[in-house]
Design a binder for these strands. Structure first.
Lengths: 202, 202
DNA sequence: CCGATACGCAACGGTTCCGTTTCGTAAATA
DNA sequence: TATTTACGAAACGGAACCGTTGCGTATCGG
């Protein structure tokens, strides 16, 4: 018995190509990142971009939505390391990460889809929210709750309101703020002006 | 000469039907309001919904984008009457109007389009921003500037930051806040928590 | 080597929408 | 009445994409 026994017996025949699978997912994310909407995204375009036959796609996913679900699931969520020294610093880190992601076209367009097509593709969004939104939301919630506990933030603060203030303000700036201007100090300015409202006042 | 002479001579033949024109625009807004994206919106669907032949549409608009531009232009912008008694009251009125519009499916979906398809349809968005966004933005800017002048708001406040705080927080709540819950007091709560930050402190 | 499965490719019939044309009819002017 | 233009309806050829199938080749286990 020199051959190791896999836990699940490999089925006979040529195994599926991992390379093709990755190329399909990459092509899907690329096209979405280039501004293509979910409804405009065609299997044929994905196959062409990935250098793959349509058969290879249909063998793995029965429809477009399933494919996009899996593609979105591969978007890693590398939350920033939080120093934990102060609530202010941690919030600046979180907003900075948010702004940086909003700058990447791929994340940016996926975010657009999340905001506009949530009603039409509920399964898609459920998965995306679970994978991408919730971790960030909970990270910010944890920071705010820690700040309330430590006395850095107003003990009467509604946590959801605090998150809306920070995230909403940041989102607004990246969407409709002064164009082109990247303003590396923006996260700090947002946190400071919001903190002045929600920070505990002695 | 019993017949009045119009300023512009009416061309011979049957005049175009205003009723058909309105039906086309209404059908367009209806379909957009039902969640249909710009790219999925087809001339044939509009014609069918409006009870009109495709010919009647193509006679007026050479392409889909032109039609949507005109349709969006008919969306009136009835800004709320501002009492002008206090900055706080006026801001609550503005945010209340924003939330009310976000509740109407037609305005809601048009807003979705504005946020997600701005890159793909720049002409569309330019017109929409000019027609719908700018008046509201300027109304809020005026209130904030009046508040700064009157001493109700922090004299060092960045007006754009103030608008981002108010509008962004409101947007965030309507998008990802607790579902279903309408919370009629939300505009007031948002204004109060933001004011606590941007209001001048004696 | 053999059987099995995956591969890329091309073609299929079917659907939807495109923008145009034709048709018979309706509504205006002259 | 004659002319002119608009109307709704239907059909056109063309394009894109659907999901499927067949083809010849490649890659695995036995």
């Amino acid at each position: 018995m020199t051959i190791q026994e896999p836990a699940v017996a490999r089925p006979a025949g040529r195994p599926r190509s991992e390379k093709a699978e990755k190329a399909i997912i990459e092509a899907t994310l690329d096209l979405l990142g280039e501004g293509m909407g979910v409804s405009e995204l065609s299997i044929e375009a994905i196959a062409s971009r990935a250098g793959v036959g349509k058969t290879t796609i249909y063998r793995r996913w029965s429809n477009k939505e399933d494919l996009i679900v899996d593609a979105l699931a591969t978007l890693k969520a590398p939350l920033p390391e939080l120093g934990g020294t102060s609530v202010r610093d941690d919030l600046i880190s979180l907003l900075g990460a948010m702004r940086a992601e909003a700058g990447q076209p791929r994340s940016r367009c996926v975010m657009n889809i999340a905001m506009s097509e949530a009603d039409r593709y509920p399964r898609l969004m459920e998965r995306f929210v679970e994978r991408a939104i919730t971790p960030r939301r909970e990270a910010m919630r944890a920071v705010i709750e820690r700040g309330i506990a430590s006395g850095e933030l107003d003990p009467g603060l509604d946590v959801d309101m605090g998150m809306a203030l920070l995230s909403g303000t940041m989102l607004w700036h990246t969407k409709w703020g002064p164009e082109g201007e990247l303003d590396p100090g923006l996260p700090e300015r947002v946190v400071d002006v919001v903190m002045a409202g929600i920070a505990a006042r002695p």
